[in-house]
């Protein structure tokens, strides 16, 4: 698996809201801003849609890093989705820190549809942070060698 590999590359799952951050990622691509190819994008309707269950099971499945990104506060397509998300993410990131998940594994950001350059730099920064942390092991589910086929 990836973590035994010397050429390890972090695998980062990005939950991007359809209206801002996903469009921001699109703009980054169209504008040819370079950013690391380590992210795998999951498009969600709103950052308010991203539940703790999704974040935790992404960690469980072995993602080295997570990025959740939505519209800037005030810009939500659904008026207030990201305000609710902000409260939930604040508590979740504190709780994860409290139980010893390395700060930097789970990241949250606001990127609007016009911020292609900022999207690239957020991805750059998140990737560097996760790379510095190394492969994820905490809360990553592994089957014993004996149990795996």
């Amino acid at each position: 698996m990836t973590d035994q590999n010397d050429n390890w590359e972090p695998k980062i799952i990005a939950f991007l809201c359809n209206w801002c951050s996903y469009a921001g990622a699109d703009l980054a691509g169209v504008s040819r801003f370079q950013y690391p190819p380590n992210i795998r994008i999951v498009r969600v309707p709103c950052s308010g849609r991203v539940s703790e269950n999704m974040i935790m099971s992404t960690l469980k499945s072995g993602a080295d890093g997570i990025l959740v990104s939505g519209c800037h506060p005030g810009d939500c397509h659904y008026i207030s989705g990201n305000y609710f998300a902000r409260r939930r993410f604040a508590l979740l990131s504190n709780l994860l820190d409290f139980v010893g998940i390395e700060p930097g594994r789970v990241n949250f950001s606001w990127v609007s549809a016009s911020e292609g350059e900022q999207f690239a730099s957020v991805v750059q920064s998140v990737t560097e942070k996760v790379r510095a942390l190394g492969p994820a092991s905490r809360l990553v589910k592994k089957l014993d060698a004996a149990q795996a086929a």
Partner: peptide
């Protein structure tokens, strides 16, 4: 059933 990275049990 549990599947982790393509390995199931």
């Amino acid at each position: 059933d549990e599947v982790v990275w393509g390995q199931g049990r």
